[in-house]
Design a protein around this nucleic acid. Structure first.
Length: 806
DNA sequence: GCTAAAAAGTTCCTTCCCGTT
DNA sequence: TCAACGGGAAGGAACTTTTTA
C-alpha cells in the first residue's frame, strides 16, 4: 500500500509546519545558539524518551490520514506532567522569580516575562519556559521529558501584559463568583473581558442575542449572574489573547468596550465590521463578512450597545491543530510553573511591581464601561453583601435583581451566591488544559450518560440549536462518586478538544448556556482564561449527579479565531469536541482535589456528521502481534464498503506501515463494523507497539485515528474492551494523549516550589515542607524536587488530580 | 521529464430558510 | 403568537487535483 508520505510532498506549508512543530506558547525559540540550560527545550536534540513511555511511541510524529503531509505527533506527551505539577510555586512567595538569570537567548521571552507579570495568563508560558531552571533536570525538562523538536516555525511574540483583558485589571466587584464551594483561592481578579472568548472584531454583524452567549446582554440577563474571571493558573495555551495593538494605550480597552465608551460602533446592520478602520489589524482581516444582505434571520436590535459576544477563546499560542496532529510533550511548557508565575506575579494584588508603566496603565479598568454593561445583569455585584458561600438550596432567598425583572426563568431550587468582591489572588485550580484524572482516592467523577456523537453546533448568527442530547434520549449526565459531605460542589463544564492530543479547551467551540422551560438544571456562565465555562451545581440531594440539559455548543468562526495573534490552531475540519467536566473537592487541610472527566467525542459540523465515519467504541484496545482477532467497532456512518486501515507511524511522521483489516461485510451495519485485526509487520516485537487505525468510507472520508496496541507474543493479552481500558475515553485514549491506559489518580500540591514526597499516600501526593515555604522559587529546586520519571513508573505519564492548598 | 501557473473540481464553512415543537 | 429547536441547503471561500505551458 502506498503510504501517505509517498503521495504527499514532504514540504509542508509553513503554516503547517509552524503549527505542528511550534514551540510551546511563549517559548521564544531562537535560531541562535542557546545555552544548554535552555536549548533543550526549544532547539536541542531530542533526548531519548523515558522508558515508561516506550509503549506509546512517545512524541512520535506521524502523518495524518487526512492531511498526509501534516505532522502528527502521536505518543505519550505527558512525560513531564507529574513533575510539572510539582513545580508549582506558591503565591506566598512573592514576585521573586530569578528571572534575570535566564539565558540571554531567551531575552525575548524575558521581555515578555517582565511584561508578563502583569499580563494575561498566557504570557506566563513565556515566563516559565524561558526560565533557566526549568530546563535543568532530565535533560531539559523535569523528568527528562523530550524537548521540542526543531522545525519550521513562525515565531510569535505576543505583547504580553499589554492586553486589555489582562487579568490584572484591578479587581472589580463586577467580577463576581458564585461561591458554591469554589475554592476560596479561585482567582477573581480582573475586568470581565467582554470579548473574553471571541474576538469582538469578529462579531457577526447580525449576531442574535440568543446565541451571543459569551457576554451578550441576553445571556447575561438570562443568567443574571454571568461573570468572567481569568484563571490565575492559566496556561500558555489559554492564550495571551493579544491584540496587535493592545500596547497602544488608547487601544487598551477591550474593543467591546469601545462602543460603550462612546466609540463608534454602529449597529451591526450598518456595517459588517464596524471599527475596522480604526484597527489596522482588523482592516486586514480577510474574514468573510456577512452575507450580502448583512442580515440574519433574527437580527440583533439595531443600535444595541452590545458590541460583541466576546473574544475568542484563545488567542492562544496553542499548538497546531488539525484533527490529526498534535505535539509531543516536549513542546509543552509546565503549566504548573506557569501557574506559579501567575501566582507570584499576582499575589497580594499589588501588581505594580515589575509592570511596565504601559502595562499598568493598560490594566486600568474601564469602569464606566463595565458598569454600563453589567449593571442590568447583576445589580448586586457592586453592593456589599455576604461573602461567597456557594449556592445552596438552603441559602438565603435571593434578593430580586434587576435582571429578574426581565426574565422569567424558573428559579432553581438553589441560588448562586456571589462573593462581595473578588477574592485575593492565590494559586488555585488547575488551568483548563491541565490533564486531570477522573478518580482519586474515594472520589470518581464519572460520565453516567454520554452525549450523542453528533451535535450540530450553532453559529453566533444562528439561533441556538439546543442542548447537547444523550445518545439514548435525554441528556448527558455526570456524577461524582465517593463524596459524602453535605456541601454542594460546583461542576465545571467546558468544550474541549477531541483530537488525539492533549485535552484542552477548544479554540473554535464554546459551551453555550441553554435556558428555558425545558431546562431543569441551573447553571451559570463564567469565562476562565478565554474559555467559557458553565458551572453547574452538584448537590448531595441529587447524589452529586447533574443532568446536563443546559449546555449547547457554539461555533466560532474559524477566521475569527485563526487570525487572532498567537492562535495556531486551525478550525478547518477541526470539528470534534468533547464535553469536559471538572469538579474541585475540598480536602482536609484546606486543599482541593481536582478531578476531570471528558465525554466521548462529539462531531459538531453539519456535513461531517452526516458523512464521515465515526468510531465511538472499539471492543479491544490491544491484542497479540499476530493479529487475527475480531474487533467490533461501534459508531456511525459505517458502510459495507468501509475500510479499516491500521497504520504505524515513524517519528518523522511517515507511515511506516499500513495494512487494511479485513471487514466482515455481512456483519457491517451503519453503527457497527466487525474487523479482523491484521498481524503487525514485525512479529518479534519485545514491547507493546502503539499503532492506530481509522475507518475509511472513501477519499477524505475517514474517521479519526483510533489507538490500538500490538502486544508481544509473550505478553499477557489484555482483553478488556477499550471502554474499560481507559476511564476517560471510550476509545482507550487517554484524553490527554490519545494513548495508553488511564492515569493513576493522584494528588498534587500546587503551592510552594519545594515538594516532598509523602510516602503515606500516593507517590504523586506531595506535602508542602516548611522549608519549601521559605525557600523561595528556585527553579533548580523545582526541577530537583519534582518526582523523577522513575517515580511515575510504571506506565505512561500520570496526570494528576490536583491537591491544592486553599 | 520537470516545474510552475492556471484552470477545474472538490470540500468545507457560514449563513439563511423554513418547518416543527 | 412567539421563540427555540433542528434539518436542509445556498453561496462562496478554501483547498486539491488536473491540465497546460
Amino acid at each position: 500500500m502506498k503510504s501517505a508520505e509517498e503521495e504527499t510532498p514532504e514540504v509542508l506549508p509553513l503554516s503547517w509546519g509552524s503549527r505542528a512543530m511550534a514551540p510551546p506558547p511563549g517559548v521564544c525559540r531562537q535560531s541562535q545558539p542557546v545555552p544548554a540550560s535552555a536549548a533543550v527545550q526549544g532547539a536541542g536534540p531530542a533526548p531519548s524518551p523515558p522508558d515508561w513511555a516506550a509503549p506509546a511511541k512517545p512524541n512520535t510524529p506521524a502523518a495524518c490520514p487526512e492531511e498526509p503531509g501534516a505532522r502528527v505527533w502521536s505518543g505519550t506527551v505527558l512525560s513531564s506532567w507529574g513533575c510539572e505539577h510539582y513545580t508549582y510555586p506558591s503565591s506566598s512567595l512573592g514576585p521573586a522569580l530569578p528571572l534575570p538569570t535566564a539565558p540571554p537567548t531567551v531575552s525575548g521571552c524575558h521581555e515578555l516575562q517582565t511584561v508578563g507579570l502583569g499580563g494575561p495568563p498566557g504570557g506566563y508560558g513565556a515566563v516559565v519556559d524561558a526560565a533557566p531552571g526549568y530546563f535543568l533536570a532530565g535533560g531539559g525538562r523535569p523528568n527528562g521529558a523530550p524537548p521540542a523538536l526543531e522545525s519550521p516555525r513562525i515565531e510569535i511574540t505576543p505583547y504580553l501584559g499589554l492586553h486589555p483583558h489582562s487579568q490584572f485589571f484591578p479587581d472589580t466587584e463586577l467580577d463576581a463568583l458564585p461561591g458554591a464551594r469554589r475554592p476560596s483561592n479561585t482567582a477573581t481578579l480582573g475586568l470581565p473581558p467582554l470579548d473574553a472568548y471571541r474576538d469582538p472584531s469578529g462579531l457577526s454583524p447580525a449576531s442574535s442575542l440568543s446565541s451571543r452567549s459569551g457576554h451578550s446582554e441576553a445571556s447575561s440577563f438570562e443568567s443574571g449572574c454571568s461573570y468572567s474571571y481569568v484563571s490565575p493558573q492559566t496556561s500558555p495555551w489559554q492564550s495571551p489573547c493579544v491584540s496587535p495593538r493592545a500596547a497602544e494605550p488608547d487601544d487598551a480597552f477591550p474593543r467591546g468596550l469601545g462602543s460603550l465608551l462612546g466609540s463608534p460602533r454602529p449597529s451591526p446592520a450598518a456595517s459588517p465590521r464596524p471599527g475596522l478602520g480604526e484597527d489596522g489589524w482588523l482592516a486586514e482581516r480577510p474574514s468573510r463578512p456577512c452575507s450580502p444582505s448583512g442580515h440574519k434571520r433574527r437580527l440583533a436590535p439595531t443600535g444595541s450597545p452590545q458590541p460583541s459576544p466576546g473574544a475568542s477563546p484563545a488567542g492562544s499560542p496553542r499548538l497546531s491543530v488539525t484533527e490529526d496532529s498534535w505535539l509531543g510533550a516536549g513542546h509543552f511548557p509546565s503549566s504548573a510553573i506557569v501557574a506559579a508565575i501567575n501566582a507570584l506575579s499576582t499575589d497580594g494584588l499589588d501588581l505594580g511591581d515589575g509592570l511596565p508603566p504601559k502595562a499598568r496603565r493598560t490594566a486600568e479598568p474601564p469602569t464606566p464601561s463595565l458598569a454600563l454593561k453589567l449593571e442590568p445583569a447583576c445589580e448586586d455585584l457592586g453592593a456589599p453583601g455576604p461573602p461567597a458561600t456557594g449556592f445552596s438550596g438552603d441559602g438565603p432567598p435571593r434578593k430580586p435583581t434587576f435582571c429578574d425583572q426581565f426574565l422569567a426563568v424558573p428559579q432553581p431550587p438553589y441560588t448562586w451566591a456571589r462573593p462581595r468582591s473578588p477574592v485575593a489572588f492565590s494559586p488555585t485550580l488547575p488551568a483548563l488544559d491541565w490533564q486531570l484524572p477522573a478518580r482519586s482516592g474515594p472520589y470518581e467523577l464519572r460520565m453516567e450518560v454520554q452525549p450523542k456523537s453528533h451535535h450540530r453546533a450553532h453559529y453566533e448568527t444562528e439561533g441556538s440549536r439546543g442542548a447537547v442530547k444523550a445518545a439514548g434520549g435525554g441528556h448527558p449526565s455526570v456524577q461524582l462518586h465517593g463524596y459524602v459531605s453535605s456541601e454542594p460542589l460546583t461542576l465545571q463544564l467546558f468544550i474541549g478538544t477531541a483530537d488525539d492530543r492533549l485535552l484542552r479547551p477548544h479554540a473554535f467551540y464554546q459551551v453555550h448556556r441553554i435556558t428555558g422551560k425545558t431546562v431543569a438544571t441551573s447553571s451559570q456562565e463564567a469565562v476562565l482564561a478565554h474559555t467559557k465555562v458553565l458551572e453547574i451545581p452538584l448537590l448531595p440531594q441529587n447524589h452529586m449527579r447533574a443532568v446536563i440539559d443546559c449546555a449547547g455548543i457554539l461555533k466560532l468562526r474559524n477566521s475569527d479565531i485563526e487570525l487572532r495573534k498567537g492562535e495556531t490552531d486551525i478550525g478547518r475540519k477541526n470539528t470534534r469536541v468533547r464535553l469536559v467536566f471538572r469538579v474541585h473537592v475540598p480536602q482536609p487541610g484546606g486543599r482541593t482535589l481536582s478531578l476531570q472527566v471528558a465525554s466521548n467525542p462529539i462531531e459538531c459540523s453539519q456535513r461531517s456528521a452526516q458523512e464521515l465515519p465515526l468510531v465511538e467504541k472499539q471492543s479491544a484496545a490491544s491484542g497479540p502481534v499476530l493479529g487475527g482477532r475480531k474487533m467490533v467497532l461501534s459508531g456511525h456512518n459505517f458502510l459495507p464498503d468501509s475500510k479499516v486501515i491500521f497504520v504505524e507511524k515513524a517519528p518523522d511522521g511517515h507511515h511506516v506501515w499500513e495494512m487494511e483489516a479485513k471487514t466482515d461485510r455481512d456483519l457491517c451495519q451503519q453503527n457497527s463494523l466487525v474487523v479482523e485485526i491484521p498481524p503487525f509487520r514485525n512479529l518479534r516485537i519485545s514491547s507493546p507497539v502503539q499503532v492506530s487505525f481509522y475507518v475509511c468510507n472513501g477519499k477524505r472520508k475517514r474517521s479519526q485515528l483510533q489507538p490500538y496496541t500490538y502486544l508481544p507474543a509473550h505478553a499477557p493479552i489484555k482483553t478488556e474492551p477499550a471502554d474499560e481500558y481507559d476511564d476517560c475515553s471510550p476509545l482507550g485514549f487517554s484524553p490527554q494523549l490519545g494513548l495508553g491506559p488511564s492515569p493513576t489518580a493522584c494528588m498534587l500540591p500546587s503551592g510552594p516550589p519545594l515538594l516532598a514526597p509523602t510516602p503515606s499516600t500516593s507517590p504523586m501526593l506531595h506535602e508542602l515542607t516548611p522549608a519549601a515555604l521559605k525557600a523561595g522559587p528556585t527553579l533548580c529546586h523545582l526541577g530537583l524536587a519534582a518526582p523523577s520519571t522513575q517515580d511515575l513508573l510504571p506506565g505512561p505519564p500520570q496526570p494528576s488530580a490536583l491537591l491544592q492548598p486553599q
